[in-house]
Computed example of a mutant assay.
Amino acid sequence: MASSSTTISLSLATTALISHQRTTTSVASTLKPHERTLLPPSSLLGTSINLEKTSLRPRPITRSKERNSSHGATCLASSSPPPPPLPSALLFDCDGVLVDTEKDGHRISFNDTFNERELGVTWDVELYGELLKIGGGKERMTAYFNKTGWPEKAPKSDEERKEFIASLHKRKTELFMVLIEKKLLPLRPGVAKLIDQALAEGVKVAVCSTSNEKAVSAIVSFLLGPKRAEKIKIFAGDVVPRKKPDPAIYNLAANTLGVDPSSCVVVEDSAIGLAAAKAAGMTCIVTKSGYTADEDFLNADAVFDCIGDPPEERFDLAFCRSLLEKQYVS
């Protein structure tokens, strides 16, 4: 009886095993290769099998992790961080940034005006460098005459002196514009490139200067060209009552353009321009000019000798973007 019982048990086990293998093969054929390994292994011959409790359906697969088959490394799915924001606006100073105008542009035009009016005044290179610490041409002349004495041909009353200074400045601007129209003063390296990059990305571009509005417009129109000029907003001259280092002109630019000052990047060349930009809460890059190379730029976000064109490029719009990223992280 024992032998007969063993034979029947073995027969039933064999039949169940064959059925199990056929079902497994059928199921496996419908699965992907990496899913087949999840099927229960075949039972050994002679082992009792409870067909009622054995499930031949594949286990559900959790895909929260994917395994690299070649290296066995587990990689968690992750989304890439968003790129840093572009500047909302790129704001340029004019003199010394767009064009190195001071020594061989404005200074010469001031001296030609003084000579025409027979005032007996000449500003040499060193003296003019000191006068540049005063923002604005009219303010510069007024401060100089107050310190050294007014010319004999100058009027005596304060009101008449204001008109006298204004007339000198108007003539100086006319002479300066002749230099610009003749393109005797070229753009600094990299200026056109950086402006083109900004405009192509939809970044607003403006020029913020203490110089006369006509002189700044002439530089933008003649040296950057009319197509660029029509896309560039100009804030210059007496558009604000207080000149740099006061932040008024940068505050005006941000308000007019409708942008957050913290999302603006300013390109300046002087300590007073840097002070104005930082007081307005803006990121500021300094590109040193002939007269400002030795000034203190400790508070600048970056300092270069120029913007630069390839292959001697110093920075581009991507660098401006990276400065804003650091600002937001900090």
Rank of each mutant, 00 (worst) to 15 (best):
G136A: 09
S78P: 00
N111M: 14
L76W: 00
V121P: 01
D100W: 01
D112Q: 10
T101G: 06
E130M: 09
D112I: 10
N146S: 12
D100C: 06
H71M: 13
A89Q: 01
E126G: 04
C75A: 02
L119P: 01
R140I: 05
E118F: 12
Y144P: 02
P82N: 05
N115H: 15
L90C: 06
S78Y: 00
R107Q: 07
K138P: 04
S88M: 01
W150D: 10
D158S: 13
S78L: 01
T113R: 01
T142V: 08
N146I: 12
Y128L: 08
L132Y: 01
A73Q: 12
S69H: 05
E102S: 05
P83E: 08
S80A: 11
S157E: 13
E130C: 13
G96Q: 02
L98C: 03
N146L: 15
G120R: 13
N68E: 06
L127R: 14
P155F: 03
P82M: 03
P81L: 10
G135E: 11
N68F: 04
S70W: 08
G120D: 11
P81E: 13
E130N: 12
R161V: 10
T101M: 06
P85W: 05
V97R: 00
C75S: 10
H71R: 14
G105F: 02
W150A: 09
T148M: 15
T113P: 00
K103Y: 07
S80M: 05
P87C: 05
L119M: 10
G137M: 01
D124Y: 11
L86T: 04
R140Q: 11
T142Q: 11
C94Y: 00
G72L: 05
K133E: 12
G135P: 03
P85H: 03
K103P: 00
D93G: 03
N146Q: 15
E160W: 02
K156L: 12
A154P: 05
L98N: 00
V121Q: 01
V125Y: 12
N68G: 06
D124N: 15
R67E: 10
T113A: 04
V99M: 09
H106G: 09
T113F: 02
T113Q: 03
P155D: 03
T101S: 13
E116F: 13
E102W: 03
A143Y: 06
V97C: 02
K138V: 03
D93S: 08
T142I: 08
C75H: 09
T113Y: 01
P83R: 03
E66Y: 07
A154N: 05
K133F: 12
D158G: 12
K156R: 15
D158F: 11
P151E: 11
S70M: 13
N115M: 09
K147M: 14
P82W: 03
L132F: 01
L119V: 06
V99F: 01
T122E: 12
D93N: 10
V125K: 15
F92N: 06
V121M: 06
D112Y: 07
L76A: 02
P151Q: 12
E130A: 12
P83M: 07
F110L: 05
T74Y: 04
S109G: 04
G135M: 04
N115D: 11
G96F: 02
E66M: 11
L98G: 00
P84G: 10
D104N: 14
A77S: 00
E126R: 14
A77D: 00
F110T: 00
W123M: 06
P84K: 11
K133S: 14
G137P: 01
L127Q: 14
M141F: 13
S69F: 04
A77Q: 00
K153N: 15
